[in-house]
Design a protein around this nucleic acid. Structure first.
Lengths: 212, 212, 212, 212
DNA sequence: TATGAATGAGGGTTCATTCAT
DNA sequence: AATGAATGAACCCTCATTCAT
């Protein structure tokens, strides 16, 4: 699931850990990369630093990842996989709720997901654009757009495809833009609750009144 | 370390070019950097490539910029300065118009500005986060937020500071999020005009109905 | 250094395999090395590749060979040993034949031997010159020279040592040079038979007329 | 001539030295590589060792050669170029001499050339076979074969193409094999003069009596 | 005995920056 | 003022070899 397909490419895991010892090693490496990236970004993150923090040798690192980039991609795949579940489950939960409640719940989850995955899903790809090529996993933005689209179709079955697309675009970007920024700047004038409430109201207004 | 232990700071232009020859050189360097970054991003942009494209030697490059980063920062400053004017002028133009028209105009200008400055204002900082430290110039986001805040205060003088801040936050992020995304993905379901119209309507609805 | 500070020497087999299981392992390793070298040469041949092809772990490999070089040296020794028998037998066979037939037979055998052992006897040593030091076994060239010298002494007992040496040198190098090249380039203008015939004639002419 | 075509490939000179200083650098690098290879072969010759012996930094090395292999290829090209001249000149000198004298002269020159170029022409390619791909220059063996073929055609115009090819093959390999070996082992039983005399006699006998 | 995990000493290469001319 | 040569500190990665299980 998380991308440990046995393939060869420069970007995928080199060998599946068999002994539990090596499972630990793989985890330490990913964890180390994550922690260091949280402080200094991915671009300047060296294999030496990762290995040192993980408490393994540089050589070990290359037993499990064929390249530095593969480590980052593994983080991305893990993160994507975790999100997939959360998204799917959310949709089934909100599907049959009244719009106001459903939207609010969706936004609350979205906020939590961004908090948990922003580093890997957003910063990683923006610092190392060349990774996009190797990122097989569906990005969390596409996933979110999918859920949201389904929701719109479910609630407003009278809309035509183009109209769904258009409305989905705005809903997505409003939610995304606000959440990203909220997480980044943590404005003093807002708490999590007030933020979610207001954003939900904005979205509800938009989807209900529709364009026009 | 880099020989400029004097009061100049590591990130700012080394000397103000006086002669027109030098001015040309500085401009070619910046222009070269910009063009190359447009194709391959900033992260992997080397001084050698810039110098070559600018038609100067690497030595010369260092006569006008104390470091590679200084070149990028100069681009950032230029871009920021240009935007400052546009923003100020916009505010004075929309200040006394009816909200619907004003908001639409503001969004239209914003879209144009993002198109023109996205590379330097957004990609640069996201690819090279370490530059943020040295970025003295006020970012275009802060500037936009300022204009927007003024506008809200002007139109809704009854709001208290906290309320202004809150509403401004959402307006900003809605606009920014949608514009960035629109510029990036150019969704088929939208044209510039329909995009601006719809976004303006969303913002108008929000500011007018207000929170609650 | 490598943990074999005892009297074994860095280059020779670590332990004589007693059980047939071990014998199989040793053979698979050597066979694997041979096959891989045939395709990609010895220089870039890694222990990992050998172990994998042999179907054993890297650890096991080091249980039978104290070093990577030891594997190659073992190949060399095997090859040399096999050639020893063939050479000896050849000499006894041609010893009492008329020169023309004997020379021809000798060349034919030589050609076969080079075809069979070129990889290990020639390519190995030329790609990894540092092995020469550890190559205890008598090389096949020396062996061939020995047989040839005996033959000359046997047929031309009137020659003094120096003269034998000289003539042997030329015979050897003519035969060797032509065979190597023939095996390598497989010239269209020649078949095995025509090649052996012509080479035998050259050698016969030379040895019979002698120098002067 | 020596391969400094301005091309891009991984194997060709990176930039033509403009200042005399850099010409010196390039020469030191090549000289250093040559000297070190004479002692330890090419396979294990590192860029660090070359740079150190040349008295330059590793970085400098890469200003003139795009890779380690490019250095070796430059040596090969230089050597090939030098040989081209010698070969051509030799042919015009021996062309109209009586066979005995011509052959002797040719062998003498060949011996000198092998002494001078063996390291680069033979050992280099045998230690690093992957270089053959990038070796644009005509090898000295091909060159020698060409001269020799011309000579045979010139002296024995009655031979058909196949016959020329065959005879040329043997002449080449006899000469080459003997010379290589002579240079390598320096047998006590021979001096340069006696070696050249005897080899010339062998070749003369062969070409004159011909096959059959 | 056999395995696979772990190691670490380099190897080739890049590139921002400095220096001599 | 300008050039291009030179530098050297890193960086990514490999692989023979050892070790723990």
């Amino acid at each position: 699931m998380a991308g440990n397909s046995d393939g060869e490419g420069r970007y995928h895991a080199r060998k599946a850990p068999r002994q539990s010892r090596s499972k630990t090693t793989v985890e330490s490496i990913k964890q180390a990369a994550l922690e260091l990236a949280a402080r200094g970004g991915f671009a300047g993150l060296t294999t030496a630093a990762i290995a040192e923090r993980a408490g393994v040798s540089k050589g070990s690192l290359y037993q499990y990842f064929p390249s530095r980039e593969a480590i980052f991609l593994a983080l991305y795949d893990d993160s994507s996989a975790k999100m997939a579940g959360a998204m799917k489950e959310m949709f089934s939960r909100i599907r049959d709720q009244p719009p106001e409640r459903g939207i609010k719940q969706a936004i609350r989850l979205h906020l939590a997901l961004v908090r948990a995955h922003h580093l890997v899903q957003v910063e990683l790809m923006s610092e190392l654009p060349e990774l996009s090529a190797g990122a097989a996993a569906i990005s969390y933005e596409e996933r979110a757009a999918g859920v949201s689209r389904l929701y719109i179709q479910h609630k407003y079955p009278e809309l035509n495809a183009r109209e769904v697309e258009r409305r989905n675009f705005f809903v997505q970007e409003i939610v995304r833009g606000c959440i990203y920024s909220y997480v980044r700047v943590q404005p003093e004038a807002l708490t999590d609750n007030s933020f979610v409430d207001e954003l939900a109201r904005i979205v509800s207004n938009y989807t209900m009144t529709g364009a026009r």
